[in-house]
Design a protein around this nucleic acid. Structure first.
Lengths: 223, 223
DNA sequence: CGACACTTTGATATTTATCAATACTTGTGG
DNA sequence: CCACAAGTATTGATAAATATCAAAGTGTCG
């Protein structure tokens, strides 16, 4: 198939552009496919392009000095990465890995800077993406640094449910990855989930399904 | 005295502008003074202006659900705040407090957006500031989530020394604030510093002075 | 079906927070 | 300039949360 602008149209930073402008952008975009488990990029790689997740899921993480992994972002279809360093910084500081088969479109640094000149609304959009990401990270920093694992997990569960608009949902990550996201270990997650279940706050079902029975009470955990 | 552009010139985001342009900007800037301990803004305040620290020191922090404080940034002369939300977000998510007598210049949201239109280089500069801040926060998140307090403190000490280009320096923060920055308690900081001293890695002198004796060994702490 | 990765559960160790008491600093008003 | 008050820092004893290590259980995908 010969999609016209199959990934460019997905992305908020190009929103508000006309169709023919999107076509122009699409024409300078490169397409790649990654299998589950494949590495998209490594820390210290040269950062030479903006990446758009056209389809799939990517985890972006850093390694601490002691070798432990910290999951920073879970990119979904339509998310972008690499913009943070596209300007001054020239090296990546994190690792990217596909969690499922994933399609990526990328735009080279130079082309992107050109685009921003041509369509100034793009830079405003990029600023907005930055702003959101900063706010999210600030919150994550605060919560890992000051709240108990139990509280962070409770929060994560209620927020995930809220964003999916349902009380029953499938954990989008392996416990192993969820652990690095929340700054804890898989064992602790297992135990805390069992505890929540024993308290009647959630119900665990096969296939990583979680049902939240009492979101309010859950949030009071360890408050 | 009648300074021409006493704060605007300090700030990287206005760099590369001509003197008369800086004068224009200075003319729309508002000046305020805060005493040590005074609050500059609170979470949930409307975010209606970009703030420039013309002189002084400001701590920016968040409160977690359990009421504990997390220091996110320590703004020094020439730093800016508020840019993150100047676009889409309309409310602050953190608190700002002057640590010493502080002069602030602020530019109202509307004026700033106007400026960005007139001088496109400003938005590129803002993007760069964002990028740096993101990178710093990502690192902080990783380190609080995955490293021991001891390692984080060791890191903080060597980095501070490195950035000041000296092995002996005065801690720029009270232990209380340093604790919230590193995600720990003042007591633990006291103890860890004593430990480092006992190991001969640092020397503590009166007046919050710290001398680093063996930066390499310090970084191996708990690696 | 089997291998391999992931998860759970248990026993234990470790780190760090918490609480409490004492000492030290610093700035202020007499 | 001193003395005191208030905030800040240290030290000790104890408790709590979570990591770690180990082993058994479960799921999943070729």
């Amino acid at each position: 198939m010969h999609a016209t602008h199959d990934c460019v149209q997905l992305v908020p930073i190009f929103q508000a552009l006309a169709d023919d402008q999107l076509d122009t952008i699409e024409s300078i975009v490169q397409h790649r496919h990654f299998q589950a488990g494949e590495t998209l990029f490594n820390a210290s790689d040269d950062l030479d392009s903006l990446m758009i997740v056209a389809n799939g899921q990517v985890k972006v993480y850093q390694l601490a000095a002691n070798g432990r992994e910290q999951l920073l972002y879970l990119l979904q279809t339509g998310d972008i990465d690499g913009e943070a360093a596209l300007f001054e910084n020239r090296q990546r500081t994190s690792y990217g890995e596909a969690l499922v088969p994933t399609d990526i479109c990328s735009i080279r640094r130079q082309d992107f800077q050109q685009l921003m000149q041509t369509y100034p609304s793009i830079s405003i959009n990029v600023l907005n993406v930055f702003g959101k990401r900063l706010a999210q990270l600030e919150k994550q920093t605060t919560s890992t640094a000051t709240e108990s694992v139990e509280a962070r997990l409770a929060n994560y569960l209620t927020e995930t449910a809220a964003s999916l608009n349902t009380a029953t949902f499938k954990l989008p990550l392996k416990k192993k990855d969820l652990a690095t996201f929340l700054g804890t270990t898989p064992e602790t997650i297992s135990r805390k989930l069992s505890r929540f279940e024993k308290l009647g706050l959630i119900t665990q079902k096969p296939g990583k399904l979680i049902q939240i029975n009492d979101a309010d009470q859950l949030l009071l955990t360890d408050a």
